[in-house]
């Protein structure tokens, strides 16, 4: 399916608004007092969930555009990736602000001592250079090849995010959701390996 430039722009506007809805919902819940008995827990889980969703959406762009012959989808990828960073940032800020009240020393103790937080923190830090180099100017400055190498960090970030979630749930012995995320991320990565090993064109970066 091919779209005109104009149609793609409209699609992106709609996508932008849709992707912002979870945030709007969360903010409205704060003011409507609908966050339940434990607001911090609610916000932490909600922003964490949406980070994982957007990591999956971002990773799904390339397989989808190939399988559905929708090359223009690549033009939505940057936005999806930045939304993943946006929700990860909110998730981290919830931890730093609402959970630790900006007590950086206390937060740091948690990061070092508790593996699931260590992994979550690393995942967030790894997302920063990707978000920082998402502009066209940065792509030019780095050069396509180097930029592409850097952005392959997503192949590490997504599994680490799932591992963080898995470990968090481990104590509750409740693995159904982390396993589901794990399978989706694994599928999205495997399809890339498949294409690389068994022919089909290598992944072409078109930049925009």
């Amino acid at each position: 399916m091919l779209l005109t430039n104009k149609q793609v722009s409209w699609f992106k506007i709609v996508l932008f608004i849709l992707a912002l809805l979870p945030f709007i919902r969360l903010v409205s819940f704060v003011f409507l007092d609908k966050l339940g008995a434990n607001p911090v827990e609610f916000i932490t889980r909600n922003t964490g969930d949406w980070t994982l969703y957007f990591l999956c959406f971002t990773l799904a762009v390339t397989p989808l555009r190939k399988l559905l012959h929708m090359p223009w989808l690549i033009r939505c990828r940057r936005m999806l990736g930045l939304y993943a960073f946006f929700y990860a940032f909110l998730h981290f800020m919830t931890f730093l602000w609402f959970d630790h009240f900006f007590d950086v020393a206390e937060m740091w103790k948690d990061v070092i001592k508790r593996p699931f937080i260590t992994v979550g923190f690393i995942t967030f830090v790894l997302l920063i250079p990707l978000a920082a180099t998402s502009t066209n100017a940065m792509i030019k400055r780095l050069g396509g090849k180097r930029w592409q190498w850097l952005h392959r960090l997503i192949y590490l970030i997504a599994p680490l995010g799932v591992l963080h979630y898995f470990w968090m749930k481990a104590g509750k012995s409740d693995f159904s959701q982390p396993v589901l995320f794990g399978l989706i991320v694994a599928g999205l990565l495997m399809i890339r390996l498949w294409w690389r090993w068994f022919g089909r064109d290598p992944v072409v970066v078109t930049g925009a």
Binding site: A37, N38, K109, D110, R114, F116, M168, A170, G171
Partner: peptide, 12 residues
Amino acid sequence: HPRWSQATERRI
């Protein structure tokens, strides 16, 4: 707790 501190708590 191995995954979080028990030094503080949040009163619901």
